[in-house]
Design a protein around this nucleic acid. Structure first.
Length: 461
RNA sequence: GGCGAGUUGGCGGAGUGGUUACGCGCCGGAUUGCAAAUCCGUGUAUGGGGGUUCGAUUCCCCCACUCGCCUCCA
């Protein structure tokens, strides 16, 4: 069996992955807060962990992997959006969830086995908070419940910080009801206008971190294999999850995986820099989902990834070539995969290495293995995508083009190259690309195909 | 201020204690009336300084720089 190696943030080392139960490999990934379209940065962890999900399914069997990714649907950003637009919170979150799933499907992400929403697990969160209070790890104060960081000696182990360091750095809001400035909120009160649930501490809503601890325990058990997310979540979110869960007596996650951030043309994506865009924006501009995925996978997940126009163009070019090549292969997608591909993915998801191997397969003319490898990577679903296919012409258009090409052949025969080139350039201008071959000239429809220009050319020559 | 990651050729981007993958670009060539496409081929890199070693790009230390996080954020 393939040995998967993963870089565990907790130990800061690459380790062989050993599941708790190979019949039931369990992974939890922090999903989005649903208040707006997913931006390009949101797509990175989705794609990275989708590759891992596919790898796990390949190694342990599709029915032996349980992948959970949550939707955070209770949050002050959502409340703000509701107040600002006058729309119901439920409408906003429902719509955003469906957008998210559509957009992520476009970049080739499989849906996880479960996609719990925080609002559906309030009961479990309240129970967990009560338990933490009973165990002396949390306390109620002024309608809030706070986790006592002081009560968990290993706090900071994941991110490599000590509580003293953090207090020294102090940019922490010090609320009067906190015993310690580092304590974080498990439950907070809601006013009339804010969503809330009845609880032993009055009407209120959960703090951000508790949902993942509660839902992971409910859906994956109190100890599971892998927990993932962006490295901006490492602190404080994941640190707090660990503190809560461990103090509730849970083993929690064995392996922690974090992907690095995304940049755009060398800079952090931000609204103020004007380089902020959503996945939907790119798709609407005609950037295929496969291209987005390819660019994402061309940088290792633990390195900052720079989205550039140049990479987009290169990716499109490479994929177009590969799709044409694998179109020549009839290999069935039976789950077998080229050894080099599987080994590179299993080596801490070294997708750049995989892509390098794919170039080798392409150059060697091994289109069957290329086909299978692209399938495992999620870049190919069994159908050559429309954008990579040579688009056909109607019969009438084909006749017209054949006639023009014929005239060009005659002109070439007469060594009237001026006329021949005029026809070639005219065809090109009308959006018909030409390649001379040993036998008949080949032609293809380009994106700027214009039947009127073609007609004009036919009439004037 | 604290914590973390990183610094490889023109660009992107891996691996490796001992001939530095691979892709794009560039250059040269084949082919072509010219193009396009295709094919063949050449060249170019491990931030700086120490240390360990027969030998370091790879391991260790220091420095410089870059990026991220520490505040909602994937």
């Amino acid at each position: 069996m393939t040995t998967i190696k993963l870089h565990n943030t907790m130990t800061r080392r690459k380790e062989a992955f050993v599941p708790i139960d190979p019949q039931d490999v369990r992974m939890y990934v922090c999903g989005p807060t649903v208040y707006d379209r997913a931006h390009l940065g949101n797509a990175r962890p989705v794609i990275v962990f989708d590759v891992l999900y596919r790898l796990l399914r390949h190694v342990y069997g599709a029915n032996h992997v349980n992948y959970v990714r949550n939707f955070t649907d209770v949050d002050d950003k959502i409340n703000a959006k509701s107040a600002q637009t006058g729309r119901e919170i439920g409408d906003i979150t429902d719509e955003t969830v469906s957008w998210f799933l559509e957009d992520m499907a476009q970049v080739g992400a499989l849906e996880p086995n479960a996609m719990p929403r925080a609002t559906q697990y309030i009961v479990q969160m309240v129970a967990m908070i009560e338990d933490l209070i009973a165990r002396g790890h949390a306390y109620a104060a002024q309608g809030h419940v706070l986790f006592s960081v002081d009560s968990y000696a290993q706090y900071g182990a994941l991110s490599g910080r000590s509580v003293d360091d953090m207090i020294a750095g102090a940019r922490v809001e010090v609320a009067p009801y906190k015993r310690d400035p580092m304590d974080f909120v498990l439950w907070k009160p809601s006013d009339e206008a804010t969503p809330g649930w009845e609880s032993p501490w009055g009407r209120g809503r959960p703090g951000w971190h508790i949902e993942c601890s509660a839902m992971a325990a409910e859906l994956l058990g109190t100890q599971f294999d892998i927990h993932g997310g962006g490295n901006d979540l490492q602190f404080p979110h994941h640190e707090n999850e660990i503190a809560q869960s461990r103090c509730a007596g849970h083993g929690f996650a064995n392996v922690w995986l974090h992907n690095e951030m995304l940049q755009v043309e060398g800079k952090k994506m931000s609204k103020s820099l004007g380089n902020f865009f959503t996945v939907r924006d790119l798709l609407d501009q005609g950037v295929p989902g496969e291209v987005i995925r390819f660019v994402m996978l061309s940088t290792h997940y633990r390195k900052p990834m720079d989205w550039t126009e140049k990479k987009r163009v290169e990716a499109e070019q490479t994929l177009k070539k590969w799709f044409r090549q694998i179109g020549l292969s009839t290999a069935t997608l039976d789950g077998s995969v080229h050894r080099g591909t599987i080994e590179a993915i299993a080596d801490d998801l070294n997708t750049p290495e995989v892509i390098s191997n794919l170039h080798a397969l392409s150059n060697a003319g091994d289109f069957s293995q290329l086909r299978k490898s692209l399938y495992l990577l999620g870049l190919f679903d069994g159908q050559i995508p429309k954008w990579a296919r040579v688009e056909g012409f109607s019969d009438a258009e084909t006749g017209l083009i054949r006639d023009l090409l014929n005239r060009r052949e005659i002109a070439r025969g007469d060594r009237d190259f001026a006329k021949a080139d005029l026809l070639r350039d005219g065809l090109l201008d009308a959006g018909v690309g030409i390649k001379d071959t040993a036998t008949e000239p080949e032609f293809e429809r380009l994106s700027n195909f214009d039947i009127n220009k073609l007609d004009g050319l036919w009439g004037s020559s």
